[in-house]
Computed example of a mutant assay.
Amino acid sequence: MTRPVVGIIGNRALINDRYPVHEGGQMNSCAVSHVAGCVPLLIPADPSYVSVEELLEICDGFLLTGGRPNVHPEEYGEEPTDKHGAFDRARDAITLPLVRACVERGQPFMGICRGFQEVNVAMGGTLHPEIRELPGRMNHRMPPEGTLEEAFALRHKVRLDPEGRFAALFGAEEVLTNTLHGQGICQPGARIVIEGRAEDGTPEAIYVKDAPGFTLSVQWHPEWNAEADPVSRPLFRAFGDAVRDWAAQKGSAKAL
């Protein structure tokens, strides 16, 4: 039986500082294939190559990955500053309408880090350019040195709504996660429900209220060690189940 397809939103990069590529972390593909049980398909997130309409037909679900460039502040009505960092307007042009289309259709997606922030912006929310500069906030950025294992180490707790979807999925009201981001949610968008926060109050787990499909998104990186981590594993499995349900419904509709 053919597995359903998850489109993994890629990022632009340069090899040897001069050769342009679209790239995606292997850990994303591993989590989608080995834990969610779906076919990982890397998407060049650029409207000059693909359209939202094409992606909606080709893929059964989407993983909105992390990435160094940030959502451009003009997408939420603000002027860019040095604190906002680098941008990828081509990715913005694909992911923001893609999120809105998936919410409307009930097509499943999961946002991670930048993808989490894209979901908020797509629904009309805003972002803080630099979390660590806010009073009482910790530094959520990746440690500047050390091994990959040290960079993705579990660093803070996330407190969950005890009656919410994430707590039910994880079987806990508090989980331990990694943290590798500079920006974060300022004002939540319309229908964005914040169900998890770090110890300093930073939003960490959201979903879109009344969306007919899977929209769970997190600020941390669950793709790291997804097969073994007790928080990552149920999240990706639930996402995979939602993608399979969508693919089955799509197949039934085509058969009519």
Rank of each mutant, 00 (worst) to 15 (best):
P162D: 14
A90T: 14
L64H: 03
Q183E: 12
G106P: 02
N70K: 06
F87Y: 14
V158S: 05
Q117E: 07
K250L: 10
C30Q: 15
D210V: 08
A153I: 07
G164V: 07
A45D: 04
P222M: 06
D245L: 09
F62P: 00
S252A: 15
R165Q: 14
I94C: 01
G240L: 07
N139V: 05
K250M: 13
T179R: 04
V99Y: 02
F170H: 07
G201I: 13
E75G: 04
P20R: 12
P4M: 09
D60M: 03
G61Y: 00
T2G: 08
H128W: 14
E199K: 03
D200L: 05
V35G: 11
P4Q: 08
L127H: 00
F214Q: 01
Q117V: 01
C186E: 13
A238F: 08
V218A: 05
Q187Y: 09
L256G: 13
L14G: 08
R68K: 13
V218I: 05
N120K: 01
D82T: 14
P108S: 09
L98E: 06
F236H: 03
E54C: 10
E54R: 11
I9M: 14
L160P: 07
L41E: 09
G106K: 05
D210P: 04
L180D: 02
M142V: 11
S51E: 11
E74Y: 08
S29D: 11
A248F: 04
Q107K: 15
T177W: 02
L98S: 02
T126G: 04
H34R: 15
G213K: 01
P162L: 14
F62Q: 03
V218R: 01
V35N: 10
V39S: 09
G37W: 14
E174Y: 07
A153H: 10
R18Q: 14
P188I: 08
E133A: 13
L235M: 15
G124D: 02
V5N: 04
E57T: 12
T95D: 03
F109M: 01
E173Q: 14
V119H: 01
V175I: 15
C38N: 08
P234Y: 09
F152Y: 15
L98A: 08
P162Y: 13
P44Q: 12
I206Y: 00
P234V: 10
E133S: 13
L64F: 12
F109L: 02
L256Q: 12
N225G: 04
L41D: 05
Y49L: 15
C59H: 03
I194M: 04
Q187M: 11
V119D: 00
D82M: 14
V103Y: 02
P108D: 05
I15F: 10
G125L: 02
P69T: 04
R165V: 06
L180H: 03
T179Q: 05
A168I: 06
P144C: 13
D241K: 11
R141M: 15
Y49D: 10
L160E: 06
G125V: 02
I94P: 00
E204T: 00
N70L: 05
D92G: 06
P203M: 04
C102M: 07
A36D: 07
P212Q: 11
A253F: 11
G182D: 05
A93E: 12
V121A: 02
V218P: 00
Y207M: 04
P97T: 09
Y76G: 03
A101K: 13
M142W: 07
R132P: 01
P203R: 02
E57D: 14
I15Y: 10
V50E: 07
M1L: 15
F239N: 02
H72L: 09
V71D: 00
R155V: 09
A190R: 15
D92K: 03
I94W: 00
